[in-house]
Amino acid sequence: MKNRYLVGGPITPLLISELMTLGNDDNGAGAVSIFIGKVRDDEVNGNRIKALDYSAYSEMAEKEADGIVKTVKAAFSDVRKVLLVHSTGMVKAGEASLFIMVTSGHRDHATRACRHTLEMVKERLPVWKKEIF
């Protein structure tokens, strides 16, 4: 299965720009809500995190991500597009590892559906992280 929702390495500003262009070809969408998740340089037992090494059960993650997008579209009638991308592999502190973009006719469904997508990613996407110091 082709990976549509997983990308190797960080979600770069260039990729974010491309995703926003991809999701913005719809003049009926009056609202665009975006969430970008970044790696924090937390301190754990006196050591600062330099990066997170993400792993995924790719085949299941693609299926679950597809399900999340369909669920969000079904739950929020005003939503027009849901884009969802998660990193696998090494992502340094300060870099982005998750991108969610929801477009809708009006602001209410865009913001609520974006948050809902994020919560479902946390709950349903089979992704794990290993801290690199």
Partner: peptide, 10 residues
């Protein structure tokens, strides 16, 4: 069968 510890995405 996949053994899945708690998910840590995001």
């Amino acid at each position: 069968i996949a053994i899945l510890p708690p998910f840590e995405g995001g």
